[in-house]
Simulated assay, not measured.
Amino acid sequence: MQKTVFVKLATLAVAGMLSQGAFAADGTVNFTGEIVDAPCSISPNSQNLTVPLGKVSRTVFGTVTGTPPVSTATIGKKSTPANFTIDLLGCGATAKGATVTFSGTADLDDPSYLRLANAGQVGVGAASGVAIELGDSAGTKIALGSPSGEYVLGLGDNSLKFQAAYVATKTAVTVGPANSVAQFTVAYK
């Protein structure tokens, strides 16, 4: 009788150890977030956006002549804007309006624009002579570090629409990667 109990316990122990392989960890999932005192939540899809501005010919900003090519850009001339949205979720009755402020590295020629990463650095190969202009859905410029116009919010979900475009800041535009990063802050009214 004791031998039978011992065999059953040994069998269970072996089966338990063998089943542990089915529960082995193959990776890690990190969850991040924050609980905030705000009338709306920012959609997870809007928290880390990528806005493709496209492959824009430098001729968009002016003429290119000669060998090697030399551009003569018109300062302030913009590329076709790319649209993007920041979605607010579950806005309550206290959420009447909101403004959005974009921050980042300011352009050296016009601090109201977002500077390109590595712009003008020798040997880096990044584009120069352009920056990124941010605007609301109507194309009204939002200066870097300044709040947008007020967006009226309703109960529930709200989409705040924006656009971004390259803008010439010098008469000479060089080619290369034209990337940048901005952060945004939503202020509720």
Rank of each mutant, 00 (worst) to 15 (best):
L153E: 03
K141Y: 04
D26F: 13
T174R: 01
Q47G: 05
L53W: 07
V29K: 12
V51G: 00
G123D: 09
V5K: 10
K161E: 10
G90V: 02
D157G: 03
T11Q: 08
T63P: 00
T99D: 08
R115Q: 14
V152E: 15
F23T: 12
L134H: 06
K161A: 13
A117K: 05
V70W: 03
A24V: 14
M17D: 05
A93D: 11
N30R: 13
G156T: 10
P44N: 14
D107G: 05
P69G: 05
V60Q: 05
P177C: 00
T50R: 12
K170T: 11
A25G: 11
A38P: 07
A73C: 07
A106W: 02
L144D: 04
V122I: 13
S19C: 08
A38F: 08
D87P: 00
I75Y: 01
A95P: 03
E133W: 00
A106S: 14
F23N: 12
V56W: 02
Y151C: 06
K141M: 08
A143H: 06
T185V: 15
P44W: 03
P39Q: 09
L114M: 08
L18N: 07
S137W: 01
F61Q: 01
A73R: 00
A106P: 03
G90Y: 07
T101S: 08
